[in-house]
Design a protein around this nucleic acid. Structure first.
Lengths: 140, 140
DNA sequence: CTTATTGCAAACGGTTTGCAGGATA
DNA sequence: TATCCTGCAAACCGTTTGCAATAAG
């Protein structure tokens, strides 16, 4: 995993564990908080630097939703997916739709481009308020 | 147009004109620069505040792509569209695809949500470098 | 021992806010 | 005149960077 010429350090181990154990979509502050529980004194700079390393190394993805914070999630199995964010409770669902992917490629082609990446976030509201107990669950 | 209890001022007129005259997708700095050509001394704060007012008033949309800058575009006719950004030259195309819209609604429904809004940005590269003279044109 | 990594604090860039002066209705 | 708006500068917030101390190989 660290054939990328990186030294193995305690902070990197902890940060990697935090990233994997969470269900993904952690903000940097989330990561700092959780990692400091295990390793007090860990600095923000280290977290920012390490998270970027993880992205370069291909083990994490960087996501930016509408709240001005950068979030990270482990790459893991399952591969690509997009996001469906509930504005009522804040829960983030993941989805995948091959037809949408295909149509994206078509749109790009029509403009003389080849798709490099994309971001597709759907924002919604819970139809039934009961369905929306995610927030509490997510925190727990 | 200003039945929103707003006073009509020179700076607001200028800012509105700048927004309309451009092909959209202007960063705040773009707006400041263009507006100051017409009204030197215009402050950044005013631009930020006014642009937000425009959004509230429903005459402008706020867009955030991957470069950490907020961009604005006039609402105008034509309605909703998504974006296709060329990483080679920076040009921003607009597109619309009903099938994609339909599928989004379906995805949301499957999770018990109703779509409120969405963001769909495709990033691509020019297939033919020649096609990619947009940058120069856009600046001119 | 050499090189990479860490933590701190200062720097940063975009955006927001407090406030006194100025323009609008 | 009463109120809203503006410009300035300082505050903010998330993120980045310089640097000396520290740990990994």
């Amino acid at each position: 995993m660290k054939e990328h010429r990186l030294k193995q350090t305690r902070q990197r181990q902890v940060l990697f564990d935090v990233l994997l154990q969470a269900e993904g979509h952690l903000s940097v502050e989330d990561v700092v908080t959780r990692a400091q529980a295990e390793l007090p004194g860990l600095g923000h700079a280290t977290v920012y630097r390490t998270l970027k390393l993880f992205v370069e190394a291909g083990v994490a993805h960087e996501r930016r939703f509408q709240d001005g914070q950068t979030r990270y999630e482990p790459v893991e199995a399952g591969g690509h997916h997009d996001h469906l964010i509930c504005k009522t409770c804040g829960h983030i669902f993941e989805f995948e739709d091959d037809e949408i992917e295909r149509r994206q490629a078509r749109v790009a082609k029509a403009h003389g481009l080849r798709v490099v990446s994309h971001r597709h976030d759907i924002y919604g509201e819970c139809v039934a308020p009961d369905t929306c107990s995610w927030k509490k669950q997510a925190q727990a």
